[in-house]
Design a protein around this nucleic acid. Structure first.
Lengths: 155, 155
DNA sequence: TATTGTTATACTCTATAACTATA
DNA sequence: TATAGTTATAGAGTATAACAATA
């Protein structure tokens, strides 16, 4: 393993560690003036990014979790009036989960706070470096996602 | 928020999501021929990266968790003979946690498997892109870490 | 009195299994 | 019989509080 790779892995591990701690989430949601659990926010932002109502199963796939997990958080969000569920007109077994007006507003705030925060972290970066980061992270994200399939799980 | 930034955040979210799922851990540890919980592996690799025995508190700081969490996993690793604890000669309240020979071997295997896997994901990348990724991720990791302090938690 | 670490406890995140209803 | 989702349950990850021992 060469040095670049070793450095890449180490940097990555540190980033993922930082971004996954409960405290980071707590700080960001507080800045957004929101009091929601992390998976709740993930569901909201997923719906906002999608730009249209999504099925439970489709949300689960995006978040790479099992569907009962999504069911639970959608129920919580529904109770708080941030999403609403409609029977899928094409398939009576399925639901479409839609952001309410308030839900869209909250989701937007969460997304903006995260963006602003990362923007802050990138203060002082040249335009060229920002563009490169965007390009390389996009590529990495795709390649990691594809490459994941090569790791088989034996039950 | 400009498009590059938006794309960066989205790519990042996807990466972190993927890399944090239990299944990814399960696959990597299986490839390493190890049966350990994620935090156990994190502790082992932290010790290996450090290259010398570390205190409980110092490990917790690196992993950005509270110390009881580290206490628990060090206890498990000790029981399996992968680490050993020695009273800190300079401070009778503290311990030094050291990898045993077997622990170092296991930690090395975990680190190698992760590296090899990421290397696989980067197959087809040019040397220039790899070097850029390494440079930008290193910079990002530092800047994110620094910038974290700007988000204050109000209790 | 402050600090290092442990014990006890509880909350959050996520998965699996068993189930219901529709296709 | 297969698929979308739910309910129930359990396990993994982490934090907080109360404590002991040493500085």
């Amino acid at each position: 393993m060469d040095d670049d790779l070793q450095a890449t892995v180490a940097a990555f591990r540190r980033l993922v560690t930082t971004l996954n701690r409960g405290k980071t989430h707590e700080r960001l949601t507080e800045a957004a003036g929101v009091r929601l659990h992390r998976p709740d926010v993930e569901v909201l932002v997923t719906l906002l990014d999608a730009g249209e109502p999504r099925r439970i199963g489709s949300i689960a796939e995006t978040l790479q979790v099992e569907s009962p997990h999504v069911t639970r958080h959608v129920a919580a969000l529904e109770q708080r009036g941030l999403v609403e569920r409609v029977r899928d007109p094409d398939d009576g077994r399925a639901w479409r989960i839609a952001l309410t007006e308030e839900g869209a507003e909250v989701a937007g705030r969460c997304r903006r706070v995260t963006g602003a925060w990362i923007e802050g972290a990138l203060e002082g970066w040249s335009d060229a470096d920002r563009a490169e980061l965007s390009r390389l992270l996009g590529k990495l994200s795709d390649d990691v996602h594809d490459h994941l399939r090569t790791l088989k799980v034996v039950k």
